[in-house]
């Protein structure tokens, strides 16, 4: 972890290039409860963004609105220069937007490899209009699984996996869709120190392959090791956005976490 934490932050936050993801004035209510209140967020391609906030601050709602699991009520979501609000989740996936779920949601009746086959068939295949043969599919499944060191479990049921393996499968399924943007929603909750290190290292490796990543996390050492930029959400509002070291010293952020 230390060498990761020691990595210099080399990026700049200039907005010259058109952002991969642009969220403007995003709003979402659940009855009388305002989950998201006019959130603006612009993510350039290739960035590693950490999204933090106390429980109930709207992080998962934001992910759900970006990925299409929920539809936003006000504001807009654009991805790759195209408005995607109102677009169903599966089409957003085909555009290159992948997400993992906070609680792993494997396809229980399938094997680990078959879980990976789904996005290969329905996202990658549909995107390029290609028909992969079954041996090609098998190779690709194993290739993706080897990224998360699950290749030996390919034939197992997801229900036989450990907690960390299940979370790796969740990430692998999102990665298999060959996304431009990957949103990892609390991929590390409940994991040990070394398991957290594994996943952070994996996410950084993916980022080095050109995938933009938004990571939502409570484990601060993981957030600090991973993020080039940190955004803090409190009560559905963005209260801080910037370089991680600056953001964690921000008195609003400290106040929100410590209640002062």
């Amino acid at each position: 972890m230390s060498q990761i934490m020691g990595q210099p932050v080399t990026e700049t936050f200039d907005d010259v290039a058109p952002p991969l993801l642009a969220i403007e004035q995003l709003g979402k209510r659940f009855g009388g409860f305002v989950a998201l209140d006019t959130v603006d967020l612009s993510v350039p391609a290739g960035q590693r963004l950490g999204l933090i906030g106390p429980n109930g601050s709207g992080k998962s709602t934001l992910v759900n609105c970006i990925s299409g699991t929920l539809q936003n009520e006000t504001g807009s979501v654009s991805f790759g220069g195209r408005r995607v609000d109102g677009v169903p989740a599966h089409q957003r996936a085909r555009l290159g937007l992948a997400r993992s779920f906070q609680l792993p949601r494997p396809f229980r009746s399938m094997t680990v490899a078959e879980n990976i086959r789904v996005p290969l068939l329905y996202t990658v295949g549909a995107r390029h209009g290609v028909h992969l043969t079954s041996s090609e599919l098998e190779d690709r499944c194993l290739e993706v699984l080897s990224l998360v060191a699950l290749q030996d479990k390919a034939k197992k049921s997801p229900l036989d996996l450990t907690q960390v393996e299940m979370r790796k499968l969740e990430l692998a399924r999102a990665m298999a869709a060959e996304p431009k943007l990957l949103i990892a929603d609390e991929s590390m909750a409940g994991l040990s120190h070394s398991e957290v290190e594994d996943i952070v290292a994996l996410l950084i490796r993916l980022n080095q392959r050109g995938i933009t990543i938004i990571m939502i996390e409570h484990i601060m050492r993981a957030v600090m090791a991973f993020s080039q930029r940190l955004v803090v959400l409190v009560s559905g509002r963005k209260i801080a956005d910037g370089a991680p070291d600056d953001v964690i010293k921000d008195k609003d952020v400290v106040g929100a976490y410590l209640g002062t």
Binding site: T69, A93, R94, F101, R105, F107, P119
Partner: peptide
């Protein structure tokens, strides 16, 4: 198995 995960997988 899981409709939300299905949509997210395309």
């Amino acid at each position: 198995d899981d409709e939300l995960a299905a949509e997210a997988s395309g």
